[in-house]
Write a protein that binds this DNA or RNA. Sequence first.
DNA 1: CCGTATACCTTGATAGTCTAGGTATCATCA
DNA 2: TGATGATACCTAGACTATCAAGGTATACGG
Lengths: 114, 114
Amino acid sequence: MTKPETELLQGTLDVLILKTLAWGPRHGYGIAKWLEDTTDDALIIEEGSLYPALYRMERKGWIEAEWGMSELGRKAKFYALTSPGRARLRQEVAAWHRVSAAIGKVLGVGGGRA
Amino acid sequence: MTKPETELLQGTLDVLILKTLAWGPRHGYGIAKWLEDTTDDALIIEEGSLYPALYRMERKGWIEAEWGMSELGRKAKFYALTSPGRARLRQEVAAWHRVSAAIGKVLGVGGGRA
DNA sequence: CCGTATACCTTGATAGTCTAGGTATCATCA
DNA sequence: TGATGATACCTAGACTATCAAGGTATACGG
């Protein structure tokens, strides 16, 4: 398959995960599926990116993990946003808006024709 | 210690440079300054990122270099968009709009002040 | 019983960015 | 005169996030 053009913008995965968890705890696989569904597959979350990101963020104290049962009765690790994680989410959302506005200004917000 | 919040989104430097050159040829230093001025320093282009990016894109045939004189009378290498570069620019602008719209959908488009 | 979906994990390669240096010229100002 | 800051280019090395590609295990449907 030719390059699916679904690559992530490096650095955005964290904020996407944090935002997903802001709606409530979710297991890793579910986070990826939710993001893909929500964006109509405009974003594809590779598992090789997902799980390392989850560990990274757990190590930083932004999320907490707990083993449980998925909706389908399988064992799954549920992640929940911590208080520092919520603060971090606010920061990163603000940073996203700031940077994407700047890029939009350069590229032309309307559709890039000018 | 906390990062200066002026980091580039990885993968966006190319399209920013291409778009800058769409207005006409410019030398490397001028490209960086123009981007920083245009975005009120929301984007900071480090020279250690800029010059390798320029070589990368020259190697790919998206831009062409020619030595000349800057407005201030110094020798400077001017870069110009090629025809493949223009095509690539269109592609990348479209990709940006698609991906940033998807991310915006997840993060909430309206939340500029968040 | 075999394929597909769910759910987790890891290793290794790749690639883009940043840090931190470097060269050289020119204008300004003390 | 000498120092400084801006202009303009370049590079090596480290870092780090992502991706590709493998792996384990369970459950369900055909």
